[in-house]
Amino acid sequence: MTDVLTLDGVSAGYGPFHALFDVSLAVAPGEAVALLGANGVGKTTVARVASGLVAPERGQVRVEGADLTGAAPHRFVRAGVAHATEGRSVFASLNVEENLRLSFRRALGARGVAGALDQAFEQFPALARRRAQLAGDLSGGEQRMLSMARVLVEAPKLLIADELSLGLAPIIVDEIYAQLERLRAEGTALLIVEQHVSHALALCDRVLLLEHGTIIWEGPPADAADRVVARIFEHGEAG
């Protein structure tokens, strides 16, 4: 079976700043992969390359075998890649319902919107109460739920989740990981970028360890725990 995402010898960066050096990785359909590492090693850049936000300088990006190197992000989305970005990933100037409409309309067509909205509000009652509120006024946890709700209605082939737990109360983190679990059961592959190690290790099949813009280790979660902790503490980071 073709891997849903392949990065082949990718180097990338921002203008004069290089962040990734010859990174290769593959995510198989339905597989959950955790990308771990300390602050500033290039995890988010891997996520951005994988969703087309950053075009690689060298190397190739393939989605289900199709070469999408240098393509605009909307083509990645249409190929089945969803990206929940780090930090705020909702439109602050649109209200909750408009945020959902924006993605449902594209994904499901005009007829599918109403049904999808009902489904999303049923899944996240907290959002239903705030459907007319500007997304920028939501709390951090509610914003994260909103971006999950956009993804969950039509399960993507691959979800890239970047630091979903950052700055959230533990109970909300648990809820978000429960949703990820559900998605995975439906057959969505996951690429999870985390500093919050324990949740990611519990969920994933495979772990990639990133350091200074290259992948330095790859293996099963059971073997990863010690290494990850050691690596991260070496850099003075408390995961």
Binding site: L53, P73, H74, L94
Partner: peptide
């Protein structure tokens, strides 16, 4: 709706497949 979204963030709009 898309026009309002693009003003705020063209890239995030792209991530919605637009």
């Amino acid at each position: 709706l898309q026009m309002r979204a693009v003003v705020e963030s063209p890239r995030m709009t792209e991530l919605n497949g637009i």
